[in-house]
Amino acid sequence: MTPSHSLVAENLSAGYGDSVILNGLDLEVPPGKITAIVGANGCGKSTLLRTMSRLLPATQGRVLLNGKSVHRSPTRELARKLGLLPQSPIAPEGITVADLVSRGRHPHHGLMSRWTRHDDEAVAQALEVTKTADLSERAVDELSGGQRQRVWIAMALAQETELLLLDEPTTFLDVSHQIEVLDLLTDLNHSRGITIVMVLHDLNLAARYADCLVAMANGRLHAYGNPEDVMTEANVETVFGLRSRVIPDPVSGKPLVLPIGRHRLSGL
């Protein structure tokens, strides 16, 4: 499957008030692939996702979705093509899983339009692929962190966009739930050709699951490309200020980062 969509940031600057966070950044999201963004806290990862999905205006440069500026596109039309799962979404008190997921259909409805069969099918499918169908009548606020995260992903899936940006989809999850979410996203990428861009904090999982790795520092791209080329000891040192060893991951063959702190070291 060759996806027909593209998402490109050109010379992009953005920030909050007077403080400039993104500073002339260029990024071409590879269509049909999984891209992972890594970087230190506060380096501007969320800001980049928010600007690329026009939640934040660009002070300079532009973001093009299929060649059209996202900041100039009608917001509802854009929301049918580009989905974003923010870092901390809020579940309304007591809302059920099915109800929350069905809100992903919002951009497909105008003031007067009625709910259709297709809407129900999109919601049903989103619940099924995320394995939340059994939870559909449960209240979201009484789910575990991993279940809740899958529900939010289901909501974004019900939106039926070709591109999906996810801000830290695995935060607060234990290791098995992290793997579960990343496997799910990979499945979606493989089966539906959805382009995925996600912010991850676990470097090893980022290197393992991403086709393309983006390392950010100070509002710029420090490195970009294959995980093997990006996840080097030198890059880890500049991006995170951390010494490390990088060895091949015996499980995946991808780079495995072993951080070097001041204690508990042997045989170096």
């Binding site: 939640l55 974003l84 923010p86 579940a91 929350l100 809100r103």
Partner: peptide, 22 residues
């Protein structure tokens, strides 16, 4: 006339905007 947009706002400004709410 803004019922749906208001409902979407309950999930946070970013989520609402990502769903196409101005």
């Amino acid at each position: 006339s803004r019922t749906r947009d208001l409902e979407a706002l309950r999930m946070g400004d970013d989520t609402a905007a990502a769903l196409g709410v101005r």
